[in-house]
C-alpha cells in the first residue's frame, strides 16, 4: 500500500495576460483565467499509474484561494481518491519558503505518507524550488525534475533531466519526494464517470491555524523577502524593418557590424 500525496496548484493561464496587482505587487489572480497547472496533471497521472500498478491511495494537496477548488476537482476526476485544501486569507502574498512550510505542515497532518509527487516548476512564479524546499523541511530525499520514475518495493528511482545538467540517475528509499517534468507522461482526460465520482470524493479544508502555524508567520506582511517596487516593463520598441530585396542577409550583417555584434 503506497500512500501518495500529489501537490497541485492553480495558476493563471499562460495564454491570458498576467499582471501584478498595483497595490501590493502580488499576482493579480482575478485578472487572468485560472487553470490547473499543466504540470500538475502529469504529477497526478504518475501517482495514478503507481496506484494502479499495485495498491495505494492518492491524496491531492492544494494550497490556494477558495476558487482553487476547480483545480482540486479536476485532479479528483482524473482518479485521485481524496483531497486536502489549505485555504486561508492569511496566506495571500506568502513567499516561496512560507508556502513550502505550509505544504510541509499539511503533509505532516496526513498518515504515513510514502511518496510526495509535485510538478517541477509552476508556470506563474517559476521559482522551481518549492519541491526541494518541502523535501528539506520534511527531511525527505529530493528526486526532482524526473522524466522517468519507478517505484520498486521501498526504493524509488528517478531519471532527473534538466536543461543545464543533462540526465542524472537518482535513487533513494521511501519515504521520498519526487517532482516531475512535462516530459514524464501524457495525462489522461477525466472520463464522464470520473467527473461524476469526483463530486462525491472527500475534500478536507484546513486553515493555517489547523496546521499549527501562526498566521503571523505567513502572508505578505510577514514574508522573508519583499517586493519594493514593480513596474510593467516598457514594451520593446519595434526597430528597423526592411523587405528582402535580395540583400536582406547583407543588411543584417551591416546592422550587426554597426552594433559591434560581429
Amino acid at each position: 500500500m503506497t500512500n501518495i500525496v500529489v501537490l497541485v496548484k492553480q495558476v493563471p493561464d499562460t495564454y491570458s495576460e498576467r499582471k501584478l496587482t498595483e497595490t501590493d505587487h502580488t499576482l493579480d489572480r482575478e485578472s487572468a483565467d485560472a487553470v490547473l497547472d499543466e504540470i500538475n496533471e502529469r504529477a497526478v497521472e504518475e501517482a495514478l499509474k503507481i496506484k494502479e500498478a499495485g495498491e495505494g491511495e492518492v491524496t491531492v494537496l492544494c494550497v490556494g484561494p477558495d476558487r482553487a477548488t476547480d483545480a482540486i476537482r479536476k485532479a479528483l476526476s482524473m482518479g485521485a481518491d481524496k483531497a486536502v485544501h489549505v485555504s486561508d486569507e492569511a496566506l495571500h502574498g506568502s513567499d516561496l519558503v512560507a508556502t513550502s512550510r505550509v505544504i510541509a505542515a499539511a503533509i505532516g497532518k496526513l498518515d504515513s505518507v510514502d511518496l510526495v509527487i509535485a510538478g517541477n516548476e509552476a508556470s506563474d512564479g517559476r521559482g522551481g524550488a518549492v519541491p526541494a524546499v518541502v523535501a528539506e523541511l520534511l527531511g525527505l530525499p529530493q528526486l526532482t525534475h524526473a522524466h522517468h520514475l519507478a517505484v520498486e518495493g521501498s526504493t524509488v528511482k528517478v531519471d532527473r533531466e534538466t536543461a543545464d545538467e543533462g540526465i542524472t540517475h537518482l535513487e533513494a528509499n521511501l519515504p521520498a519526494l519526487v517532482s516531475v517534468t512535462e516530459k514524464i507522461n501524457e495525462p489522461r482526460y477525466p472520463s464522464f464517470k470520473g467527473i461524476m465520482a469526483a463530486k462525491k470524493k472527500p475534500v478536507e479544508t484546513y486553515t493555517v491555524a489547523d496546521l499549527g502555524i501562526d498566521a503571523g508567520e505567513v502572508g505578505l506582511a510577514n514574508a522573508w523577502s519583499a517586493v519594493q517596487s514593480a513596474s510593467p516593463k516598457p514594451p520593446r520598441q519595434a526597430g528597423e524593418r526592411v523587405e528582402d530585396d535580395g540583400e536582406g542577409g547583407t543588411k543584417i550583417a551591416e546592422y550587426l557590424v554597426g552594433q559591434k555584434l560581429v
Binding site: 519595434a238 528597423e240 524593418r241 528582402d244 535580395g246 536582406g248 542577409g249 547583407t250 543584417i252 546592422y255
Partner: peptide, 16 residues
Amino acid sequence: ADFGVVGDLFNVAPQL
C-alpha cells in the same frame, strides 16, 4: 525585433 527582414529565411540566412 530591433532589426527585422521580411523575406524568405532560406535566402536571407545563407547570405548572412
